[in-house]
Nucleic acid binder design. Structure first.
Lengths: 313, 313
DNA sequence: GTGAAAGCGCTAACAT
DNA sequence: ATGTTAGCGCTTTCAC
């Protein structure tokens, strides 16, 4: 593999001159610049990012940790993050942690050992130590669609879960629903529990309490679309019709929710915007070196489709 | 951040001794070993992987390039790859290329600059130069679910597209279909075009030719489930009933295909197995240093659901 | 069994 | 405007 030295020799200059040309430093005579550029083109030289990383203070790599890449919302966020990262010259290290605290810890340590410049967290276990672990090692952390952490070094790009939940509950209420239940995939997940809380609060505003279980409920609110769609399937296999017998609402508005056969009423939140913005924030933090608490909330909106209906008395 | 030297000083030994302990080298007296281990525990030292990478010949990082992480088949493969990579101590660099030749090239160069130990390719453009680019730089490449490249340095973990297509076509034939059309998302994609070819060959065996377009066809075979499901939606929005008016078949058997409201007849192929195996192969190649042509084909099977039906005459 | 020293490829003072 | 040099943190001969 060609190195800086190879190019330098070929161009008959010193390493630093080549380095200066590569990095676009001002003080190089246009004559030598051309000569170096020719040598670079001839050899196909690209700086060794590993050496740069060791020497400099940056790996231009960021990590993204997610509970499950198979969730289209996360996949979409990751794609957006990857695109944004690329554009800024950063690579993305992907890690699935399945909300397993041990895996989260090990992932965190691996990310630290690899000296990533920052980490985007798109989902973690309830009470996870991952943000603190990373921050304590001086690594900037951005929480994406996962607000509510109180560390003052954290930057947060969030969805308006509270607002979204209010709108969902209001929508169901207006359809006559009074018994609504919340379901989530796992009690371990931070985001799911936050939405459960928001759900309870929204109900409370209308003087209602969450239904204990699906049995008594006329409507089910799932913590995300993936789960809502799975629940829909499960119910229908038991002969319960949606929305005739039971209404279902999701959260995220993944593309599939708009499929005519699914028609899931849900809350639209912009995974692409969140992923992209998370990268911008993490890169800014990495480059400036100061970690300050930041919180941006992306608006949500209700998309009414065919999975919710008027309650039958 | 603690370095080897910090630990060495703390333990009152030299850098090399600490290094020997860390790497589990034999010849260290158990006495000093303990002392060093204590110092490591006390400082929370973890080797700097960047320095290791620069010094050694390995970054213990592999790249995975995909056209679209939003495709559940790719997401699943990536999750499996990440898990396998993790287990072997490797990190995964994810890159979406959208089958754009320019992006592929740039991604390849970035991966080379980062000195990844190997690259798994889960999808590329037709006639892409990416495999050659990487291989020419000495980077092992494994094609996952994307066979048919003829470079002798390539290892391939493939799905049996030909076999799967035969079974699909036979299934449709048995249902009375004689006019079948193939649709794919993009003409640019390698895997899609390969399946198109397989489709034609399968038809030919039965003395049939592909239908020119959807119009004349009684059945549609899509190059993957994602596309099949999208087409299903599109058709039904036009008032065409599936399968009453038109049968649809996918390929991959993503989880959604089994959803009762979708019920997509498709070919099951094991994304998890493919992703995991691809990592094993790439790591083996990276560690042994020799690139030999290898081809493993994973069996497929037909899953008949409700998107295909007897043709109405 | 342990330590000293060279060097991976690069950047960034500092000298010229 | 260009060159020299000293490391970044680690592994790896090679002496002791």
């Amino acid at each position: 593999m060609t190195t800086l030295l190879d190019v330098a020799r070929k161009a008959g200059v010193s390493k630093s001159t080549v380095s200066n040309v590569v990095r676009g430093v001002e003080f190089v005579s246009s004559e030598t610049r051309v000569r170096v550029e020719l040598a670079i083109a001839a050899t196909g030289y690209r700086p060794n990012e590993i050496a740069r990383a060791l020497r400099g203070r940056s790996t231009t790599a960021i990590g993204i940790v997610l509970p499950d890449l198979r969730n289209p919302f996360h996949a979409e966020m990751t794609v957006a993050a990857e695109r944004a990262a690329n554009r800024l010259g950063y690579a993305l290290l992907a890690a699935n942690t399945e909300c397993d605290p041990e895996l989260e810890e090990e992932t965190g340590r691996a990310l630290i050992a690899r000296r990533v410049d920052g980490v985007i967290i798109g989902g973690i276990s309830l009470g996870s130590h991952l943000p603190k672990l990373l921050l304590d090692h001086g690594i900037p952390v951005t929480l994406a669609s996962l607000g509510d952490h109180k560390d003052p070094r954290l930057s947060i790009v969030d969805t308006d879960d509270r607002g979204g939940m209010d709108v969902i509950v209001r929508h169901l209420f207006d359809l006559g629903h009074r018994k609504m239940a919340f379901v989530s995939q796992s009690l371990q997940e931070h985001a799911g529990e936050r939405r459960r809380l928001a759900f309870s609060q929204s109900l409370l505003q209308l003087g209602l309490r969450p239904a204990r279980s699906r049995q008594g409920a006329t409507a089910i609110v799932a913590h995300n679309d993936m789960h809502a769609i799975a629940v829909m399937d499960e119910l229908e296999r038991q002969g319960i019709r949606v929305p005739a017998d039971l209404s279902i609402v999701g959260f995220d508005d993944i593309p599939l929710a708009a499929h005519r056969r699914i028609g899931l009423t849900t809350i639209r939140s912009d995974a692409t915007a969140i992923g992209g913005r998370a990268v911008e924030l993490i890169v800014k933090a990495a480059q400036s070196g100061n970690l300050q608490s930041t919180r941006e909330v992306f608006a949500t909106s209700l998309v009414v489709r065919s999975s919710t209906g008027r309650v039958m008395v």
